[in-house]
């Protein structure tokens, strides 16, 4: 039978952010089975579906970009796959993109190296203090944190109706430090603890965190897992 490998991107929001990587894995596999999509199983005594997910996300964080590769045994259009899956999934866990990929495509776990997190910060004493700190010593500390890809650190101040006290900070953290440098895996919670301590002095706290995207380093460029398989 024809084997098709599909890559898909999904979101994990609201209540579903409290579910672990393994929980989400089981939920997705059951959804595939309910959708009636023929899954390829591994050989052996305890056959497992051929599905591989991107790196686990910390419990309690919402994500707009989770990925998985799935091998199925039927000819299926990527768009149809999305439709079939989304009728089986709750609104907190939906597929947003899908593509048929070559069977020898490198695995997500080994390929993804950068994650983009955005932090919504709240401050009680808005304005200069934090901005100055960020431009100065505090910003330096964040940038020089081993888990941060410093060239792409961005701070956005969001103005608007009565929310000038809300600051958006976009941080690209390594999902995984490149093997050549050292073999460390990006530990979000490590960084998060460090970061919270750091900003405490500025009367600022993290209000909300969102994982926005994941990237693969290709020819010195950041590409999303969907772009690399183009």
């Amino acid at each position: 039978m024809k084997e098709v490998k599909l890559r898909f991107k999904f979101i994990k929001r609201s209540e579903y952010k409290y579910l672990s990587h393994l929980d989400i894995t089981r939920i997705i596999i059951r959804a595939v089975r309910r959708a009636g999509v023929k899954i390829k199983y591994s050989e052996g005594f305890n056959p497992k579906p051929k599905i591989n997910f991107s790196n686990p996300i910390p419990l309690g964080i919402e994500s707009l970009a989770e990925y998985a590769d799935l091998v199925i045994l039927q000819d299926l259009d990527a768009m149809d796959f999305i439709d079939m899956m989304n009728t089986q999934l709750p609104k907190e866990l939906k597929l947003v993109k899908s593509k048929v990929i070559a069977s020898k495509t490198a695995s997500l776990m080994s390929d993804i190296s950068v994650c983009l997190y955005s932090f919504r910060l709240k401050t009680l004493s808005p304005g200069k203090g934090f901005k100055d700190g960020f431009d100065g010593e505090m910003g330096e500390k964040v940038k020089s944190h081993p888990d941060i890809l410093n060239s792409i650190l961005k701070l956005e101040f969001k103005k608007g109706y009565n929310v000038k006290d809300i600051v958006f900070l976009k941080l690209f953290g390594y999902a995984k430090i490149f093997k050549e440098r050292n073999n460390r895996i990006f530990k979000f919670n490590n960084f998060f603890g460090f970061f919270q301590d750091l900003i405490k002095g500025y009367n600022v706290r993290v209000d909300y965190v969102l994982k926005e995207e994941m990237f693969i380093f290709k020819h010195n460029n950041l590409k999303t897992p969907m772009e690399v398989v183009n």
Binding site: S14, E15, Y18, I27, L59, G60, P90, E92
Partner: peptide, 23 residues
Amino acid sequence: KFKELESLLENIQKPGRYINKEI
């Protein structure tokens, strides 16, 4: 409210026990 639940769930083991939204 969900917001209130969220503040209760901080550092709780297996928060999935308390959130519902199962299929």
